[in-house]
């Protein structure tokens, strides 16, 4: 039987991951150790959590540039709530996530109701949130609380020398949650439908506006959650943190096989996409002789490849339609 066309990009993603990981193990014995895996999951946790939210946005045919600023904003807000108001970090995290989701929802309303390009609205959101960081705090501040040190001390040992941190566990739960939302709820399927063909989705009875608003609220939720994880992980807040993370998240989504034009892709692909970016970084660190900018070069090359692959797949689809009409 023929493999379903929808899985082609995911298969390509897995092939790239296997190739890179295999190369790492072949070149460096230590690469096969679970220590590397544990570090990969931890170091890329906040990126992957953000990218899960970004997956929904891109699936719906949109883009969210505000997520990097959101991470920094949430960090600064939490630092203020914990050290300034003496709030418990968990409560501060919940408040931050609610604020982040609400901000996402507001951007969603502007995008859906006024039919404005998501690029522009979320660009505005990006500047707005980054500016808000400085309004609250100008410098890097530590988040001092016993809970935060407990969070960073939490470890689940893996076979071998590695372990799973709290960030990694949260990230894995987020990915599972994302998969359930994407594939087992009507909202999730409607996101795919709108990204596939918005006009048709409307005629098929999909609540387009409500879905788009929820997509950006969800992206706000995930990026705020990512901000919480980032703040706990670094135990500090810095207004200039996570600059450019929105672009890393988009790259993870695309390398994970989600169509940039929307409608096709998998949350699990985004997970692999994020891991691939981490593996590239680790490989270059292991090598030692290469400068870190090679990470960017490799990721750029991979993006070129995946975007061309996507084009070929969409063309085979639209070709069917155009050829016959």
């Amino acid at each position: 039987m023929k493999i379903n066309e929808r899985f082609y990009p995911l298969v390509a993603t897995l092939a790239v991951l296997a190739l890179l990981y295999g190369y790492g193990i072949f070149e460096h014995r230590a690469f096969s150790d679970t220590y590397v895996l544990g570090a990969l999951l931890t170091d890329n946790a906040f990126l992957i959590i953000t990218a899960v939210g970004m997956t929904f946005v891109i699936l719906s045919g949109g883009i969210d540039l505000s997520v990097g600023s959101m991470i920094a904003f949430v960090g600064v807000l939490m630092a203020e709530l914990v050290t300034g108001f003496g709030m418990h970090p968990v409560l501060a995290a919940v408040i931050s996530i609610i604020v982040g989701s609400a901000f996402g929802a507001v951007m969603g309303v502007l995008i859906a109701k006024f039919d404005i390009q998501p690029f522009i609205i979320t660009l505005a959101g990006m500047f707005f949130l980054r500016g808000m960081c400085f309004l609250i705090n100008l410098d890097s501040v530590p988040i001092d609380h016993s809970f935060v040190s407990e969070f960073s001390g939490f470890k689940i040992p893996l076979p071998g020398r590695g372990w799973l941190t709290a960030s990694a566990v949260l990230m894995i739960l987020t990915v599972i949650g994302g998969i359930i939302i994407a594939h087992y709820t009507r909202f999730g399927r409607n996101v795919y439908a709108i990204g596939g063909d918005r006009q048709s989705a409307e005629l098929l009875g999909t609540p387009v506006h409500a879905t788009i608003i929820r997509v950006y609220a969800l992206s706000g939720f995930f990026s705020a959650l990512s901000g919480v994880v980032f703040a706990f992980y670094t135990a500090s807040a810095y207004p200039l943190a996570a600059v450019g993370v929105e672009l890393d998240a988009i790259a993870a989504v695309v390398i994970g096989g989600t169509l940039l034009t929307g409608g096709m892709g998998f949350v699990i692909g985004t997970f692999f996409g994020g891991i691939i970016m981490g593996v590239i970084q680790t490989l270059i660190a292991f090598d030692g002789s290469l400068n870190s900018w090679w990470t960017k070069i490799m990721i750029g090359a991979l993006l070129f490849g995946f975007i061309v692959l996507q084009r070929l797949i969409t063309r085979s689809f639209s070709g069917m339609r155009a050829g016959a009409s």
């Binding site: 929808r6 399927r189 596939g196 989705a201 098929l204 409608g263 689809f317 639209s318």
Partner: peptide, 15 residues
């Protein structure tokens, strides 16, 4: 007026 990127089953059963 259907969604080309979704499966046949999903197009039939959307919503």
């Amino acid at each position: 007026n259907l969604i080309p990127t979704l499966s046949v089953a999903e197009n039939l059963m959307l919503e």
